[in-house]
Protein backbone atom coordinates (compact mmCIF):
# COMPACT_ATOMS: atom_id res chain seq x y z
CA UNK A 1 0.00 0.00 0.00
CA UNK A 2 1.50 3.32 -1.10
CA UNK A 3 -0.20 6.37 0.33
CA UNK A 4 0.41 10.04 -0.47
CA UNK A 5 -0.78 12.57 2.11
CA UNK A 6 -1.07 16.24 1.09
CA UNK A 7 -0.10 18.76 3.76
CA UNK A 8 -0.86 22.45 3.80
CA UNK A 9 0.72 25.16 5.92
CA UNK A 10 -1.78 27.37 7.76
CA UNK A 11 -1.77 29.99 10.54
CA UNK A 12 -2.21 28.52 14.03
CA UNK A 13 -5.89 28.18 15.02
CA UNK A 14 -5.59 30.91 17.66
CA UNK A 15 -4.25 33.51 15.19
CA UNK A 16 -5.98 36.86 15.21
CA UNK A 17 -6.46 37.48 11.51
CA UNK A 18 -5.52 40.92 10.15
CA UNK A 19 -4.50 42.39 6.82
CA UNK A 20 -1.85 44.85 5.63
CA UNK A 21 -0.91 46.89 2.54
CA UNK A 22 -4.32 48.48 2.24
CA UNK A 23 -6.00 45.12 2.96
CA UNK A 24 -4.34 43.42 0.00
CA UNK A 25 -2.17 41.03 2.04
CA UNK A 26 -2.59 38.73 5.01
CA UNK A 27 -0.57 40.08 7.92
CA UNK A 28 1.85 37.22 8.59
CA UNK A 29 3.83 39.11 11.20
CA UNK A 30 4.13 37.10 14.40
CA UNK A 31 2.06 34.27 12.97
CA UNK A 32 2.91 30.71 14.00
CA UNK A 33 2.45 28.32 11.09
CA UNK A 34 1.15 24.82 11.66
CA UNK A 35 0.15 21.83 9.57
CA UNK A 36 -3.46 22.16 8.52
CA UNK A 37 -5.33 20.38 11.34
CA UNK A 38 -7.45 17.98 9.27
CA UNK A 39 -4.42 17.09 7.08
CA UNK A 40 -2.35 16.20 10.14
CA UNK A 41 -4.90 14.83 12.63
CA UNK A 42 -7.02 12.75 10.27
CA UNK A 43 -5.48 12.18 6.82
CA UNK A 44 -1.91 11.57 8.00
CA UNK A 45 -2.76 9.55 11.10
CA UNK A 46 -5.24 7.30 9.28
CA UNK A 47 -2.71 6.74 6.49
CA UNK A 48 -0.14 5.65 9.10
CA UNK A 49 -2.66 3.32 10.78
CA UNK A 50 -3.46 1.63 7.47
CA UNK A 51 0.21 1.12 6.65
CA UNK A 52 0.91 -0.16 10.19
CA UNK A 53 -1.80 -2.80 9.69
CA UNK A 54 -1.17 -3.72 6.07
CA UNK A 55 2.39 -2.71 5.29
CA UNK A 56 3.51 -0.13 2.75
CA UNK A 57 4.66 3.45 3.01
CA UNK A 58 3.33 6.93 3.61
CA UNK A 59 4.80 9.83 1.64
CA UNK A 60 3.85 13.37 2.60
CA UNK A 61 3.81 16.15 0.02
CA UNK A 62 3.76 19.89 0.50
CA UNK A 63 3.65 22.66 -2.07
CA UNK A 64 5.46 25.71 -0.74
CA UNK A 65 8.75 27.36 0.06
CA UNK A 66 11.44 26.18 2.52
CA UNK A 67 9.48 27.61 5.47
CA UNK A 68 7.40 24.45 5.25
CA UNK A 69 10.35 22.15 5.94
CA UNK A 70 10.00 22.21 9.73
CA UNK A 71 6.32 21.29 9.38
CA UNK A 72 7.23 18.47 7.00
CA UNK A 73 9.72 17.25 9.64
CA UNK A 74 6.87 17.17 12.13
CA UNK A 75 4.86 14.92 9.80
CA UNK A 76 7.92 12.67 9.45
CA UNK A 77 8.26 12.64 13.26
CA UNK A 78 4.63 11.53 13.55
CA UNK A 79 5.56 8.60 11.33
CA UNK A 80 5.56 9.33 7.59
CA UNK A 81 8.33 7.51 5.72
CA UNK A 82 9.49 10.21 3.35
CA UNK A 83 8.54 13.62 2.04
CA UNK A 84 8.41 15.70 -1.11
CA UNK A 85 8.27 19.47 -1.26
CA UNK A 86 7.37 21.17 -4.51
CA UNK A 87 9.28 24.40 -4.33
CA UNK A 88 6.74 27.07 -5.20
CA UNK A 89 4.59 29.15 -2.86
CA UNK A 90 1.09 28.47 -4.23
CA UNK A 91 -1.17 31.44 -4.84
CA UNK A 92 -4.35 29.42 -5.17
CA UNK A 93 -5.68 25.92 -4.58
CA UNK A 94 -5.43 24.99 -8.25
CA UNK A 95 -1.70 25.69 -8.32
CA UNK A 96 -1.14 23.45 -5.28
CA UNK A 97 -3.44 20.68 -6.52
CA UNK A 98 -2.16 20.66 -10.11
CA UNK A 99 1.44 20.35 -8.88
CA UNK A 100 0.55 17.48 -6.55
CA UNK A 101 -1.40 15.73 -9.33
CA UNK A 102 1.51 15.93 -11.75
CA UNK A 103 3.90 14.59 -9.15
CA UNK A 104 1.51 11.74 -8.26
CA UNK A 105 1.06 10.92 -11.96
CA UNK A 106 4.73 9.85 -12.08
CA UNK A 107 4.29 7.52 -9.10
CA UNK A 108 1.68 4.89 -8.38
CA UNK A 109 -0.16 5.62 -5.16
CA UNK A 110 -3.04 3.47 -4.00
CA UNK A 111 -4.45 6.31 -1.93
CA UNK A 112 -4.05 10.07 -2.07
CA UNK A 113 -5.36 11.81 1.03
CA UNK A 114 -6.06 15.41 1.99
CA UNK A 115 -7.76 17.04 4.95
CA UNK A 116 -11.35 18.25 4.68
CA UNK A 117 -10.29 21.81 3.87
CA UNK A 118 -7.58 24.23 4.96
CA UNK A 119 -8.47 26.57 7.81
CA UNK A 120 -7.15 29.62 5.93
CA UNK A 121 -8.87 29.31 2.54
CA UNK A 122 -11.61 26.78 3.34
CA UNK A 123 -12.10 25.85 -0.30
CA UNK A 124 -12.23 22.03 0.01
CA UNK A 125 -10.98 21.97 -3.58
CA UNK A 126 -7.57 20.29 -3.68
CA UNK A 127 -8.68 16.64 -3.51
CA UNK A 128 -11.28 17.05 -6.25
CA UNK A 129 -8.85 18.75 -8.61
CA UNK A 130 -6.20 16.06 -8.07
CA UNK A 131 -8.79 13.34 -8.68
CA UNK A 132 -10.09 14.88 -11.90
CA UNK A 133 -6.61 15.53 -13.33
CA UNK A 134 -5.59 11.94 -12.54
CA UNK A 135 -9.04 10.60 -13.57
CA UNK A 136 -9.40 8.85 -10.22
CA UNK A 137 -12.51 8.41 -8.09
CA UNK A 138 -12.83 10.88 -5.21
CA UNK A 139 -14.65 10.60 -1.91
CA UNK A 140 -14.87 13.83 0.06
CA UNK A 141 -15.46 14.45 3.75
CA UNK A 142 -14.97 10.89 4.90
CA UNK A 143 -15.18 10.39 8.67
CA UNK A 144 -13.93 6.81 8.48
CA UNK A 145 -11.81 4.86 6.02
CA UNK A 146 -11.15 1.13 5.89
CA UNK A 147 -9.17 -0.60 3.18
CA UNK A 148 -9.71 -4.24 2.34
CA UNK A 149 -7.66 -5.49 -0.61
CA UNK A 150 -8.35 -3.08 -3.43
CA UNK A 151 -11.61 -1.78 -1.98
CA UNK A 152 -12.03 1.17 0.37
CA UNK A 153 -15.11 1.70 2.55
CA UNK A 154 -15.88 5.12 3.92
CA UNK A 155 -18.51 6.88 5.98
CA UNK A 156 -19.23 10.36 4.71
CA UNK A 157 -21.10 13.26 6.17
CA UNK A 158 -24.09 14.42 4.15
CA UNK A 159 -26.82 16.96 4.94
CA UNK A 160 -28.65 15.65 8.01
CA UNK A 161 -26.95 12.28 8.15
CA UNK A 162 -24.21 9.99 6.98
CA UNK A 163 -23.74 7.61 4.08
CA UNK A 164 -21.48 4.61 3.65
CA UNK A 165 -19.75 4.34 0.28
CA UNK A 166 -17.37 1.93 -1.35
CA UNK A 167 -14.75 2.67 -3.99
CA UNK A 168 -11.92 0.79 -5.61
CA UNK A 169 -8.30 1.87 -5.33
CA UNK A 170 -6.53 3.96 -6.51
CA UNK A 171 -8.60 6.63 -4.87
CA UNK A 172 -8.48 10.22 -3.59
CA UNK A 173 -10.08 10.81 -0.15
CA UNK A 174 -10.56 13.96 1.91
CA UNK A 175 -10.56 13.33 5.66
CA UNK A 176 -13.04 14.74 8.13
CA UNK A 177 -13.24 14.65 11.90
CA UNK A 178 -13.73 11.12 13.24
CA UNK A 179 -11.35 9.36 10.84
CA UNK A 180 -8.51 9.16 13.37
CA UNK A 181 -7.20 10.61 16.60
CA UNK A 182 -4.45 13.21 16.65
CA UNK A 183 -0.94 11.82 17.38
CA UNK A 184 1.75 13.72 19.22
CA UNK A 185 5.26 12.96 17.90
CA UNK A 186 7.50 11.24 20.47
CA UNK A 187 11.22 11.83 21.01
CA UNK A 188 12.25 8.82 18.94
CA UNK A 189 10.06 10.02 16.08
CA UNK A 190 11.58 13.48 16.27
CA UNK A 191 15.12 12.03 16.17
CA UNK A 192 14.45 9.70 13.22
CA UNK A 193 12.63 12.44 11.32
CA UNK A 194 15.91 14.30 10.89
CA UNK A 195 17.36 11.59 8.69
CA UNK A 196 14.25 10.66 6.69
CA UNK A 197 14.38 11.67 3.01
CA UNK A 198 12.87 15.01 2.03
CA UNK A 199 13.25 15.71 -1.67
CA UNK A 200 12.70 19.20 -3.01
CA UNK A 201 11.57 19.42 -6.62
CA UNK A 202 10.72 22.37 -8.88
CA UNK A 203 7.16 23.32 -9.84
CA UNK A 204 5.56 21.61 -12.82
CA UNK A 205 4.46 23.33 -16.02
CA UNK A 206 0.80 24.23 -16.63
CA UNK A 207 0.06 24.91 -13.01
CA UNK A 208 -0.62 28.63 -13.27
CA UNK A 209 -2.82 30.37 -10.76
CA UNK A 210 -6.46 30.73 -11.78
CA UNK A 211 -7.88 32.68 -8.87
CA UNK A 212 -6.24 35.70 -7.30
CA UNK A 213 -7.20 37.54 -4.13
CA UNK A 214 -7.43 41.25 -4.90
CA UNK A 215 -8.28 42.42 -1.39
CA UNK A 216 -9.32 41.17 2.01
CA UNK A 217 -11.95 42.40 4.39
CA UNK A 218 -12.42 41.84 8.11
CA UNK A 219 -15.84 40.52 9.11
CA UNK A 220 -18.28 43.21 10.26
CA UNK A 221 -18.10 43.82 13.98
CA UNK A 222 -21.25 43.36 16.01
CA UNK A 223 -22.62 46.19 18.12
CA UNK A 224 -22.63 45.95 21.89
CA UNK A 225 -24.39 42.94 23.29
CA UNK A 226 -27.96 43.60 24.45
CA UNK A 227 -28.27 41.91 27.84
CA UNK A 228 -31.62 40.44 28.77
CA UNK A 229 -32.79 39.70 32.33
CA UNK A 230 -32.48 35.91 32.92
CA UNK A 231 -35.91 35.95 34.59
CA UNK A 232 -37.56 37.57 31.60
CA UNK A 233 -37.30 35.18 28.67
CA UNK A 234 -40.53 36.59 27.23
CA UNK A 235 -38.50 39.72 26.55
CA UNK A 236 -35.81 37.72 24.71
CA UNK A 237 -38.47 36.04 22.59
CA UNK A 238 -40.02 39.44 21.85
CA UNK A 239 -36.64 40.90 20.80
CA UNK A 240 -35.89 37.93 18.55
CA UNK A 241 -39.28 38.34 16.92
CA UNK A 242 -39.80 42.12 16.76
CA UNK A 243 -36.27 43.49 16.61
CA UNK A 244 -34.04 40.79 15.13
CA UNK A 245 -36.89 39.23 13.12
CA UNK A 246 -35.34 35.76 13.23
CA UNK A 247 -38.24 33.82 14.76
Amino acid sequence: MKILVCLSKVPDTTTKISFTDNNTKFNAQGVTWILNPTDEWYALVRALEIVEQQGGSVTVIHVGNAEGDQLIRKALAIGANDAVRIDVEPQDAFQAAANIAQYAAQQSYDLIMTGKETINYNGAIVGGIIAEILELPYVSLASSLDVNGSTATMKCEIEGGEETVEASLPLVVSANKGMAEQRIPNMRGIMTARTKPLSVIPAFANTQTQVEVVKFEAPPTRGNVHLVDPDNMDELVRLLHDEAKVI
Binding site: N120, Q210, V211, K215, F216, A218
Partner: peptide
Protein backbone atom coordinates in the same frame (compact mmCIF):
# COMPACT_ATOMS: atom_id res chain seq x y z
CA UNK B 1 -11.75 32.88 4.18
CA UNK B 2 -9.84 32.17 7.41
CA UNK B 3 -12.75 30.10 8.72
CA UNK B 4 -15.08 33.05 9.15
CA UNK B 5 -12.36 35.43 10.37
CA UNK B 6 -12.24 37.32 7.07
CA UNK B 7 -13.45 37.74 3.51
CA UNK B 8 -11.52 37.82 0.25
CA UNK B 9 -12.46 39.51 -3.01
CA UNK B 10 -11.22 37.23 -5.77
CA UNK B 11 -10.72 37.66 -9.45
CA UNK B 12 -10.51 34.74 -11.87
CA UNK B 13 -8.17 34.46 -14.84
Amino acid sequence: VFSGKGFAYCTAH
